[in-house]
């Protein structure tokens, strides 16, 4: 059970949050110009890496804000939390 440092509220228990999958997947601005394959890439394809993964999280039972998190899936270490629209503070 993680202890997550919400960028708006501070450290809270994981039970207050919900995970929204991989981060930094931008919704295409001109979907009409995309082939089926390109659209499927956006729609379905997600990474599942062992190591630092960038994820979307929502403080669902708190401030309801979405934010991003860099989490190492191999040991659950949270390396950074940062607001939507911000660049990941680590690589």
């Amino acid at each position: 059970m993680f202890l997550i440092n919400c960028p708006y509220c501070g450290e809270r228990d994981q039970s207050e949050f919900s995970s929204g999958g991989e981060a930094h997947i931008v919704r295409p601005k001109q979907p009409k110009e995309l082939s089926d394959d390109q659209w499927a890439e956006f729609l379905f394809m997600r990474k599942n890496i062992k190591g630092v993964q960038f994820e979307r999280w929502n403080h669902a039972h708190g401030c309801r804000k979405w934010f991003n998190m860099a989490r190492d899936t191999s040991n659950d270490k949270i390396h950074a939390v940062y607001k939507m629209g911000e660049k990941p503070p680590i690589k």
């Binding site: 929204g20 931008v26 919704r27 979307r56 929502n58 804000k65 979405w66 629209g85």
Partner: peptide, 9 residues
């Protein structure tokens, strides 16, 4: 909320 905050802020 998700769309508003993450796609169309």
């Amino acid at each position: 909320e998700d769309y508003l905050q993450t796609e169309w802020p």
